[in-house]
Simulated assay, not measured.
Amino acid sequence: MAIERAGAVTFKGNPVTLIGEEVKVGDTAKDFTVLAQGLQPYSLNDGKGTVHLISVVPSIDTGVCDAQTRRFNEEASKLPNVEVLTVSVDLPFAQARWCGAAGIENVKMLSDHRDLSFGEAFGVAIKELRLLTRAIFVLDKDNKVTYVEYVPEVTNHPDYEKAIAAAKEAAEK
């Protein structure tokens, strides 16, 4: 049975429960399996040896999620040796449609709709909504967590500058 963290964040001011343990700096990231846009499985081990900036959004079809993904897509081209992943529970088809319309080419979109494997491994699955809470994780080449931000209010933006600086730092090591 997965750990539940009641009131860990709020959604539109209301406390919600996150499923999974809270990830902390220094942890080794747990593996997960999600779906890429072509419906092929993607796991953390597929990107082994690469620095990852993982941007987690509830749904790509909302204003803040759209802005967050566009921002990291823009920054991805300036982050050599960093793979930028965006994870949501949107269907891969919806992610592909949105990316095509938005011109997103530098971010790898991943769907956790099937199993909430990522959501539970990183402690971001919202029990009440079956969505993922907004969060940012940076993993070094050995999948050690070097930066974590669970955005306290799901509808707010993350701290882009801190996440980008953490990804640059991890890539330089």
Rank of each mutant, 00 (worst) to 15 (best):
E4N: 13
T10Y: 02
F11G: 10
F11L: 15
P15Q: 03
T17E: 10
L18M: 11
G20R: 02
E21Q: 12
V23C: 08
V23E: 02
V23L: 08
V23M: 10
V25T: 01
G26I: 02
T28M: 10
T28G: 08
K30T: 06
K30I: 13
F32A: 14
A36F: 07
A36G: 14
A36Y: 09
P41A: 13
S43N: 12
S43H: 05
L44E: 14
N45H: 14
D46C: 13
G49T: 01
G49K: 04
G49C: 05
H52N: 11
L53P: 03
L53N: 11
I54Y: 00
I54H: 00
S55K: 04
S55C: 11
V57F: 09
I60H: 01
D61T: 01
V64H: 01
R70M: 08
R70N: 15
N73M: 02
E74F: 10
E74I: 08
S77I: 14
K78R: 14
K78D: 14
P80R: 03
P80I: 02
V82P: 02
V84Q: 03
L85A: 01
S88K: 05
S88Y: 03
S88P: 07
V89M: 14
V89C: 11
V89F: 10
L91P: 09
F93C: 12
F93I: 04
A94W: 11
A96R: 15
G100A: 13
A102P: 00
I104F: 04
E105R: 09
K108I: 05
M109H: 09
M109L: 15
L110Q: 04
D112G: 14
D112L: 07
H113G: 07
H113N: 14
R114K: 13
R114I: 07
R114N: 11
L116R: 04
F122A: 09
G123M: 00
G123L: 01
G123T: 08
G123A: 08
A125C: 06
I126R: 12
I126E: 08
E128D: 03
L129V: 07
L129F: 05
R130A: 13
L132F: 03
A135S: 03
F137S: 10
D140M: 08
N143G: 11
K144Y: 12
V145G: 07
V145W: 11
Y147C: 05
Y147D: 03
Y150D: 02
E153C: 11
T155I: 14
T155D: 11
P158G: 13
P158R: 02
P158V: 11
D159P: 02
D159M: 05
E161H: 05
E161I: 12
A163D: 09
I164P: 00
I164L: 14
A165C: 06
A165G: 01
A165T: 06
A165W: 07
A166S: 09
A167C: 09
E169P: 06
E169F: 00
E169I: 02
A170D: 02
A171L: 03
